[in-house]
């Protein structure tokens, strides 16, 4: 009873797409060209990297001021993005909105997501000038594209039964949403908000490069003056500490929310 299976039966969708990816990556190699000159790559790297050390701690005070502004940009832009996204996500949720609201809203969100944060920052600098307000506008718009999509997915995947039960008890559609659907979607939504705050802090660190406020301006100045890579490394070190702290806190909160929703924790 040793039946041979056809060779092609081993290739499911996952296998086929993985093979296509490998083939496409290998096929792209000829398109990647170096300068053609003989360079001492390793030596260059060592010389350049050595300029980062030791970090110049004398600029710590200045760096804190820049980081504070970066955090303020991240906090304010995330706040506004959450506020706007809640409304937009209602329009982009299949189980809440009719098709004539759903598709235009999703199209708007697609357009917003297409534009990278640095381009939003450039646009904002052109409109309001080179300051931290430009950073807030840029990151708010950028975040809305993602948060509204994540929120709408949270509403679509949330358990609808509580909402239906409240409707059957006489609640209005809005009341059933507020007390039936919202509590079930809220932990997932809050988890996305925390992720977006971390992301916005990283983005706010770079948009200063185009004049949109924050620590990015410091990075630009140190990168442009040839002997300041040790100052540059201190700024990177501070960003790393803050991003790691935010990531740690965010993960702890997300874990706690997941455990609570799955009934594994009573806190």
């Amino acid at each position: 009873m040793n039946q041979r299976v056809p060779w092609h039966s081993r290739f499911d969708l996952l296998g086929v797409t993985f093979l296509l990816f490998i083939a496409a990556a290998l096929g792209s190699l000829p398109g990647i060209e170096g300068s053609g000159r003989h360079l001492d790559h390793w030596g260059n790297l060592v010389r350049f990297a050595s300029q980062f050390f030791p970090p110049d701690w004398s600029i710590l005070d200045r760096t804190f001021v820049g980081l504070l502004e970066t955090m303020q940009i991240a906090l304010v832009s995330t706040f506004w993005a959450i506020f706007i996204s809640i409304f937009l996500s209602l329009g982009a949720s299949r189980n809440i909105s009719p098709a004539w609201i759903l598709w235009p809203t999703r199209m708007v969100l697609n357009v917003i997501r297409t534009i990278p944060s640095l381009l939003w920052a450039l646009l904002a600098v052109v409109i309001v000038g080179s300051n931290s307000l430009a950073g807030v506008i840029a990151l708010t718009l950028y975040s809305v594209g993602y948060l509204a999509k994540f929120f709408s997915e949270a509403f679509e995947s949330a358990d609808l039964q509580a909402q239906q039960a409240l409707r059957s008890l006489g609640a209005s559609p809005l009341q059933a949403f507020r007390h039936g659907l919202w509590p079930n979607a809220r932990p997932v939504i809050w988890s996305h908000c925390l992720w977006m705050l971390e992301y916005n802090f990283r983005s706010a660190s770079i948009i200063g490069y185009v004049g949109a406020g924050g620590i990015g301006l410091h990075l630009k100045l140190y990168a442009e003056s040839a002997d300041s890579w040790n100052k540059f490394s201190l700024v990177l070190l501070c960003i790393l500490v803050i991003v790691t702290t935010l990531d740690f806190i965010g993960e702890k909160i997300r874990q706690s929310l997941r455990a609570k929703l799955e009934g594994k924790s009573k806190k």
């Binding site: 509580a162 039960a165 009341q175 007390h179 039936g180 509590p183 079930n184």
Partner: peptide, 19 residues
């Protein structure tokens, strides 16, 4: 049962009076 898992017991119970 059809309860809102992410809401407190009190808020779930109060869902009955929304009408």
């Amino acid at each position: 049962l059809q309860l809102a898992d992410g809401a407190t017991s009190l808020m779930n119970a109060l869902g009955g009076c929304l009408r």
